[in-house]
Design a protein around this nucleic acid. Structure first.
Lengths: 339, 339
DNA sequence: TTGAAAGCGGTACCAC
DNA sequence: GTGGTACCGCTTTCAA
């Protein structure tokens, strides 16, 4: 039974090689094998060598499950992101990895490919694989709760109702206000925005923009939607200028979109920032590579990732969780050439 | 007992809540708890509900180790990359994640932060956490072997001696040749290269460049080193032009460096491609965002990631491994505006 | 429908 | 220095 038929050849009963097999092969007991493998010293050199040889011969590898079961260390956290190829999430992921590594934790990464359906699949599977979860979720909070019962969860950039969740807030209000103020100071009064599309409610960033615009007596209604990509940004800009040709400055949902808008402006022959000022959101490293360099309401992605990991760690170990006011990342205006 | 005292305080005996605790609390046996939790149907509704309630109450979560131990499914692979923030590795990682997800596998990601020392630390820890490894390694093959005994290993972009390793070859010979041919066709004869720096031996890409240059009767000696970043590319270009002012075209180690060179050319007031042609390597999406769009000897990063995962999967299951000729990714010239 | 008992693959503790 | 044995937390027969 269980004869996996050895794929290609041989009467190989492809069973896992266990410590027992090694013990038998070396003519010792399991404990002795354990000693040899774990470098304990209460063992004779020759015995140890014999065991080691046998282990190598058999291609033995300890089961991580059995080992994890008995020595209850090793912490693994799950990191869920919508799209690793999106540089913003890349940066967050990278810093989360950094923080985790510093603590000796492992990180299983799940990319939900920007599809909410995938989130559920991920959640179901994640529950039995990690000790805690950090990440971005768009699904309903009840769904979230349902699949992650009892697991520490830190949500990034999203509010939560249930007490069992923890979340990292992104506060861009002041930053966006500063951006609009800057544009106004440069003489712009017709300021548009490229918001994201495909969501029921308007984005928080849109709210911040609206508030800032109103505070300056500016009409906040010049808005177009843009898919979350450079191409989307280009199309969005065309749509925006089509509907509101008077626009001389644009604030975008994020840097990717801004970069696309920058490229489109070039194609349209509008000089940046002279004829069109552009300010993005996120503060990606990418912004420094384009021409002109992108002004942006910048987020400290490093902090974002490390805060999330820190918090999930506290939840995990039962230490005092960070208070809400510490779980905030403020965005601030960083000017470069594009505005 | 086992009163977890509501998170914050109390004489919490912070022991893990086990299936046993739930069983006792619900007044049933462990097996019944197992049934209830795993949705088996040989159980009375009321009993099931009682168990579920008890479990929730106690905040019970099954141990992934115990579970993994008994049902021997769940495959986890380790993905080791030098720097997730480098867009090239991001793309490879993203496609590896995709392929793994398609198979229902989990991926633990390790970022070695471009430091070879970190590799060893990672390797030591990885052995007891994953079933197979895929990734980039710069350390010595014996070291590699030493820490990963018996574990399927797929090396990307690196040759191997030992039979136990498998590797994905990157073949850029034809692509680089095409690049040089293109430049020559455009009238360039003074073609330089920005190679990477910090390595003992010259890179393969340098070798390909040298061969292609010689094939066209071009002096392959106009080379400068560049750190692997946009800034590095800028500095490299300055160095190259300082030493070889006659250069009118540049081939770079990768796209990041090329983008930096592009930016530097702009600063130096050299028009691209009219006064300086630039061709990168990798074919990153990033290349389409800069001005002018970057020509590049492009690699199919998607294929790279999925091949690696496919191969490690075969090694894992004992299926016939892909033959070396299938484990090759060819780079090919993709022209855009920069050359 | 439910429970008892036998592992899964290791490690730790205690004799020998 | 080495082996016996209990046990880590869970699932899977097999009886009851």
């Amino acid at each position: 039974m269980l004869c996996r038929m050895a794929e290609a050849s041989g009467p190989d009963s492809s069973r896992r090689v266990t410590i027992h097999d090694v013990a038998r092969s070396a003519g010792v007991s399991r404990q002795t094998v354990s000693r040899a493998l774990n470098g304990k010293d209460e063992i004779e050199r020759s015995t140890k060598q014999r065991v080691l040889d046998a282990a190598r011969e058999l291609g033995y590898r300890p089961s991580r499950f059995a080992r994890g079961l008995v020595r209850q260390d090793t912490t693994t956290i799950g990191l869920v992101i919508p799209d690793l190829r999106n540089p913003f999430f890349t940066e967050v992921a990278a810093s989360a990895l950094e923080s985790a590594r510093a603590r000796g934790w492992h990180v299983v990464v799940y990319d939900t490919a920007d599809r909410p359906e995938e989130e559920l699949g991920t959640l179901q599977v994640i529950g039995s694989q990690v000790d805690g979860v950090v990440g971005y979720f768009s699904c309903d909070e009840d769904e979230l709760d349902r699949w992650t019962r009892g697991m520490p969860m830190v949500l990034i950039g999203r509010e939560h109702r249930m007490a069992r969740f923890s979340s990292i807030r992104i506060d861009g209000e002041a930053g966006v206000h500063a951006a609009v103020t800057h544009l106004v100071a440069k003489g712009h009064t017709m300021i548009g925005m490229l918001d994201h599309v495909n969501r029921a409610e308007p984005s928080l960033r849109r709210d911040w923009f609206t508030a800032a615009a109103l505070a300056h007596g500016i009409d906040p209604g010049r808005v177009a939607g843009a898919a979350q990509s450079a191409d989307g940004g280009g199309e969005g800009l065309r749509a925006l200028l089509g509907a509101h040709p008077e626009v001389t400055a644009v604030f975008t949902f994020n840097d990717i979109v801004a970069v696309g808008a920058l490229r489109e402006a070039r194609r349209l022959g509008r000089r940046v920032p002279a004829e069109l000022a552009v300010i993005g959101f996120d503060g990606l490293q990418l912004g420094a590579l384009v021409e002109p360099p992108l002004s942006s309401v910048a987020l400290d992605t490093r902090l974002l990732g490390s805060l999330a990991v820190e918090q999930v760690g506290r939840l995990l170990t039962g230490a005092d969780p960070l208070p809400p006011e510490a779980l905030e990342v403020r965005a601030e205006l960083r000017l470069a050439g594009s505005a």
